[in-house]
């Protein structure tokens, strides 16, 4: 009798634990019909699988989920560094449309899905409360998965995009910038190989002298330039030597090139955190969106935050061929 009771209690406990992992996801607007249903089903299953894997300490089981290899690999790389769990069990969100420059819908996006980080060890440096965004292809299959940047920046950039009538392009840029940031966090050297143009120019500034005058401290900055492979070799070493890397992008500004409309200059404040080292700098990236499905980074510069507003690199500092 005792054994039966114990078995019954066990079944109840397991059932309750599984129910605790269950997530129901729904779109309130922005999409209708069969694709909506497919996206909702894929998202609910994926978020439930993430919670289940976190509860049981196992890997995420993607069976029955319509998800691209690239997206599951992206989650896997994140999972190897830090585990996380979806906060809400019932989620309703707007469906955002991602459009190509000709206005055609090339995918969809869900944002604002709250997750709480469950670090594996004390090497984790970063906020425990984060938000993720999920991208879908036009058929509703999950095509990408990223931790999002601050909502304030998103709002500001989209507002600016509405005024300049390039909101769709800004959404694409933001998505690529989010992927670029996540590639550092996930130590995804393959993404870096793909995203940097073969003839990319990488400029890094270093403060060599600070002169204190009566007026204000003046910093002297020296710059070194690297090619793509030289930069990536250094990055490989950094990835190898650090258990966890957290990169934050803030104060993002997007400027379109006046004469070359497919080139965009993105300026942002980058925070770099590892267990033994951290710094803050201004990163300027020139994106070439000639192929909007596979944009390339032509220039990436890093400057210490002590540089004058006026000396921060902009598109005007580079002659683009």
């Amino acid at each position: 009798m005792k054994k039966i009771l114990l078995a019954f209690v066990m079944v109840l406990v397991v059932g309750a634990m599984q129910a605790q992992d269950e997530v129901l996801f729904e779109f309130s607007d922005g999409i209708e019909g069969a694709v909506k249903q497919t996206m909702e089903q894929n998202t609910s299953r994926l978020l439930t699988a993430i919670n289940r894997a976190q509860s049981t300490g196992k890997d995420i089981n993607y069976s029955g989920i319509g998800i691209d290899d690239l997206a599951s690999q992206s989650i896997g790389m994140m999972w190897n560094n830090v585990r996380f769990r979806v906060v809400d069990d019932d989620i309703v969100e707007h469906c955002l449309r991602i459009r190509a420059s000709n206005g055609r819908v090339i995918g969809y996006q869900a944002r604002n899905i709250a997750v709480v980080m469950k670090p594996i060890d004390d090497s984790y440096i970063g906020d425990l409360n984060q938000e993720i965004c999920i991208n879908y292809d036009p058929s509703g299959r999950i095509s990408d998965f990223n931790i999002t940047m601050g909502l304030q920046q998103y709002v500001r950039l989209m507002k600016e995009g509405e005024r300049l009538n390039d909101a769709d392009r800004r959404m694409q840029i933001l998505h690529w910038v989010e992927q670029f940031r996540n590639a550092y966090v996930q130590k995804d050297i393959n993404f870096m190989e793909d995203v940097f143009s073969d003839d990319a120019l990488i400029v890094t500034g270093k403060v060599v002298k600070r002169q204190h005058t009566d007026m204000r401290p003046i910093a002297k900055v020296e710059y070194t330039t690297q090619g793509k492979q030289q930069y990536l070799n250094g990055l490989r070493r950094v990835f190898r030597n650090n258990a966890y890397i957290n990169v934050k992008f803030d104060d993002i500004q997007i400027v379109r090139h006046g004469a070359k409309p497919n080139y965009y200059g993105v300026t942002l404040k980058q925070g770099w955190f590892t267990k033994n080292y951290s710094d803050e700098g201004i990163v300027f990236i020139v994106w070439d969106f000639t192929d909007e499905f596979s944009p390339k980074i032509m220039v990436r510069t890093w400057q210490p935050t002590v540089v004058e507003d006026d000396d921060v690199f902009t598109l005007s500092n580079f002659k683009l061929q």
């Binding site: 500001r156 507002k159 500004q253 400027v255 090139h257 006046g258 902009t314």
Partner: peptide
């Protein structure tokens, strides 16, 4: 913030 962004753009132009 948006004012600075516009100044940056005008500088780039």
């Amino acid at each position: 913030a948006s004012f600075r962004a516009k100044l940056n753009r005008l500088k780039a132009e």
